[in-house]
């Protein structure tokens, strides 16, 4: 660094830096401002109580609910940890026969969908080809109107599409649809492996048989990543691990186009 060079090249001598008096002025004002700000009271924080406290809710203490994962059609059992009415963690339900306490990465990440900032936070109605937010009253009115129109047409050309449902809800839904003269609802699964489902139907008569890896001595898999995304992967992983632990002679033969956890 060359003070003289730069100083002289810009202004000549004497160098035109901060004058001592100016520096002291700035320092004085700055110190005063700092003191004022530092001693000012802290940000006012509010304590917002419930209007009516839900039963069994203790602030800071978690409540656990047994529920079902909806991330794929395997429908693993979940324990959802909630605090102050908000779900904060998902874990596999140890008492559930499907996943025996285990939960895949996607199931763990289901919480991200719950709190995704881009999620729909209320009903949307398509007006002039654009989705627009609406109140529940408006949306239900549109829904009732469309249902009425469908019914008066003899319920032709209308189906109820939903994602995979478990429990008694599908039965309830179909009974309600039958009351309107509509066919049973259709489940939509973007990840469904249609080729495998068709093959299973022809070979075994069901959409997806349960593969008992625990009883297997030899597994031959061609392009089916049964430990990652093919089929009911969480129970398959558990069974596969059990089989490897139980049988020393357990073998597997894989043919695949890319590397996968099953090897």
């Amino acid at each position: 660094m060359s003070i003289e060079q730069e100083g002289s090249s810009v202004t000549g001598t004497p160098p035109n830096g901060v004058k001592r008096r100016e520096f002291l002025k700035v320092l004085g004002v700055g110190t005063a401002a700092t003191t004022m700000l530092g001693c000012a009271s802290e940000k006012v924080e509010k304590l917002i109580p419930y209007l009516v406290s839900p039963d069994q809710t203790v602030p800071g203490v978690s409540t656990y609910y047994a529920t079902t994962c909806r991330e794929c059609s395997v429908a693993c059992g979940l324990i959802a940890e909630t605090r102050d009415g908000r779900t904060i963690k998902l874990e596999g339900n140890p008492d559930h026969p499907v996943n025996r306490g285990a939960l895949c990465a996607r199931g763990q990440a289901a919480l991200q969908g719950l709190y995704n900032p881009d999620r729909y936070r209320g009903p949307m109605v398509r007006r002039n080809g654009k989705l627009q937010s609406a109140t529940w009253d408006e949306a239900l009115q549109v829904f009732a109107q469309k249902l009425g129109e469908t019914r008066s047409r003899g319920a032709t050309g209308a189906v109820f599409i939903n994602q995979h449902e478990s429990g008694s809800f599908p039965g309830f839904l179909d009974t309600w649809l039958a009351g309107l003269g509509m066919p049973a609802h259709l489940s939509y699964d973007a990840d469904a492996d249609h080729a495998a489902i068709a093959a299973h139907r022809q070979s075994y008569g069901v959409a997806w048989p349960r593969f008992d890896f625990r009883a297997a001595r030899l597994v031959v898999s061609i392009g089916a990543d049964f430990l990652d995304s093919w089929g009911a992967m969480v129970p398959q992983q558990l069974d596969f691990a059990d089989a490897r632990a139980d049988h020393e002679s357990f073998n597997r033969l894989m043919a695949q186009s890319r590397s996968m956890p099953a090897g």
């Binding site: 660094m1 003070i3 730069e6 100083g7 810009v10 160098p15 035109n16 830096g17 901060v18 520096f23 700035v26 320092l27 700055g30 110190t31 401002a33 700092t34 700000l37 530092g38």
Partner: peptide, 21 residues
């Protein structure tokens, strides 16, 4: 220390002190 850094040193220090406080 060149001209620019000399001009920023004083107020800069004060700003950092204010921020810390």
């Amino acid at each position: 220390m060149n001209l620019r850094s000399r001009w920023f040193a004083g107020p800069g220090f004060v700003c950092i002190a204010a921020l810390a406080t």
